[in-house]
Amino acid sequence: MKGGGLRAYAIAYLIFLYAPILLLPIFAFNSGTIIAFPLKGFTTEWFGQMVANATLRRAFTNSLIIAVSSSIMATCLGIFAARASTRFNFPGKPGIMGLIMLPLVLPEIIVAMSLLVVLLAIGVQLSIFTVILGHTLICLPYAIAILSTAFNSLDKSLEEAAYDLGETKWSAFRLVILPLVMPGIVSALLMSFTISLDEFIIAFFLAGNEPTLPTYIFSQLRFPKAIPVIMSLGTVLVVMSIVLLTIAEYFRRRGVARTGQKDHGGFL
């Protein structure tokens, strides 16, 4: 069979990618308090502790609020940027788009530190709101990347055709462009949501005393006793990510099928 060696390599690579993650459920359901082999026995106690933990619940609520808000903000801003960059020529376009996309190639610590310095200097109280601001900034380039692909795959004459058939520019956008890029919008929302939910650095420095899931996890990693609960939390997070990505993939494929394009597969 063609590429047999390559296939074996690719499968080994996938196993390497997934192996550490597979440890999560193993130890999340292991009754031993120490993360070590051999396993002791099956328990759901850690999940119970997780649900009962008030700080964790607060962190979870905070993370949800942050992720929902910043994904909506990033996607809305992303629609403007993606539409502008795919449809219009304007002076300074490469520089402007470069600035907006910059967080993609900027180490997060720089974004976090510079934002922190400014926020402290102008006396803004650190809260989940400041995290939302930071997360919107770093989610925006990802949203734009996804939305630009969606806008780009549209034939420009579709819009002109709607306009030619008597619609106004706005109703042409609403009736033709919006439904066709809707799968891209949903993907961008889900992607931003996932990024925000997982983001640690900015949340760590900009949240003040408010916990988010990643900063809560980070704070607990020092305590060996807390690790099994973190393992169960990690399990929940991984499952959530997979569910969200599956939904995102579903919408992406539906978008592809709807407009009758060839499926090239994958995000980005």
Partner: peptide, 22 residues
Amino acid sequence: KALWIFLITIPFWTSYLIRVFL
């Protein structure tokens, strides 16, 4: 292809902190 890419991108989007911690 879409399935393979999907499988490869999943770890990419699962908590970075937890992957490091693991």
